[in-house]
Write a protein that binds this DNA or RNA. Structure first.
Lengths: 253, 253
DNA sequence: GCTGTTATGCGTAGACCATACGCAGAACTA
DNA sequence: TAGTTCTGCGTATGGTCTACGCATAACAGC
């Protein structure tokens, strides 16, 4: 079966073993002065305070009062540290759906929970994700999402696709609003003035003859009003859940 | 009205003026040896060949037989170059919907067009997007999307939200499949063996008591079969369009 | 045609970054 | 006590972007 036949099947990449706490410490040698969770927590602290761009190995080491290269005894590379940061950054999953919730209420709460995490820690969006979920907390989120769909008639593969769809949407929406916030801070414009400023820029660039539909949108004042980003989020989420509902009804009937 | 009152309203950021070709060259001084499009094309060539990580100022300069710092006479920063790369990387928009297409057929073709571009140039996904669309080609795409919804009863704001929803989905799905491709190349595993390998890893890590729903998905063999990623894409797209259709019908009826 | 102005090309250098390597010393085993 | 192995970390390499300044080329006006 397994290509590598030790006693426990194929070997896992060291980064993943680290994420699951499966690395046993050898009994010899000096006692370690730090630990992986200590380092990851420090890195998360830096990201929370100054953004992901501020997370360098030397900065994290400084946060811990250690030398830069000392970190490399615990994490194999910066990418590995980033992966562990994402895991702890997301935090524990929101828990299984309440018994009285139907699938739609459950998934709505699930989506809002991720939404809240990403609003609080927008640096999570800047970490280049490098593969499907594999760390413990991420799989916890996935598990809780799947449980929301437990009673439905969807096939298992369809459940996965649905969750992928929703989590993608949540990330996307969070990326957009965080860009507005970051652009606002970078340019010194008030956050609620960003979209109007964008609309003004568009109307200066757009030739109504070449962009008639876009011109109509601008004329309708869509961008000049600053609507609540949470309403925008809720709109898209309801569209997606409507689509899922249509599928469930088709599978049921 | 405008804060800056020269003859043409508020000033545009230089990066955007460059994207729209609005920078007039002063008559004095030596004739420039390159041009912004030349540089952007070279950068796109590098990204096509060796990925976005290979795009450094020195590499692009080498591609042109110029010195690194010569580029800074044309682009203000690397970020500006990246923005221009995205604009030309996307290429011209797919054009307005065919007359016989209803909104759904039109948006489907629109989404597949972006899908194809992102499949061909997956480095576009790695460019950190820094704001709403503002470059000419990007607005061309937006315009064509809006035209697909022209006959519908949706409000202008709802049209924008719908397109945002779809384009976000396309990017997300493309990101996922490109990650599989890149991971496959990095680890030397065949592309159609990536998902089974992932499934095997999960089943080694997951405790069925703590992750029952996830365990059920794995047991159903969802991840061991390699399904066509295009089918997966079509599934999610249809879900979203179902949701949009439900909204249109509600607005109509 | 000459001079002053202005833009270009680009060399140098600074401030970061990740990380490969090697060494001194600590903590364990035998 | 001797040997082994692991930790902390100093040093060094090669990469990144880009600020600055200088020589030169091309034009404007006299």
């Amino acid at each position: 079966m397994a290509a590598q036949t030790d006693d426990s099947g194929p070997v896992l990449p060291p980064a993943i073993e680290s994420a699951w706490g499966l690395r046993e410490r050898p009994p010899k040698g000096p006692r370690p002065g730090m630990s992986v969770p200590t380092i990851v927590d420090a890195a998360v602290r830096v990201a929370d305070a100054d953004g992901l761009a501020a997370v360098s190995m030397s900065r994290v080491a400084k946060e811990l009062g250690a030398a830069t290269m000392a970190l490399y005894r615990y994490v194999g590379s910066k990418d590995e540290l980033l992966m562990l940061m994402v895991d702890t950054g997301y935090g524990p999953s929101p828990g299984p759906p309440a018994p009285e919730d139907n699938w739609r209420a459950g998934l709505t709460r699930w989506a809002w929970a991720e939404h809240d995490v990403l609003r609080r820690r927008s640096w999570l969006l800047h970490v280049p994700i490098s593969g499907p979920p594999i760390t413990p907390q991420q799989l916890g989120w996935l598990e809780d999402g799947l449980r929301c769909l437990d009673g439905t008639t969807l096939a298992e593969g369809e459940k996965m696709s649905t969750l992928l769809l929703i989590t993608g949407y949540v990330r996307n929406e969070a990326t957009l609003t965080s860009q507005i916030a970051e652009g606002s801070q970078a340019s010194g414009v008030a956050p609620n003035e960003m979209m109007p400023a964008y609309g003004r820029m568009l109307s200066r660039l757009i030739d109504p003859a070449r962009f008639p539909a876009l011109h109509r949108v601008l004329s309708a004042g869509v961008l000049t009003q600053d609507d609540d980003p949470d309403d925008e989020f809720a709109f898209g989420l309801d569209r997606i859940l409507d689509g899922v509902e249509a599928l469930i009804e088709r599978r049921t009937g």
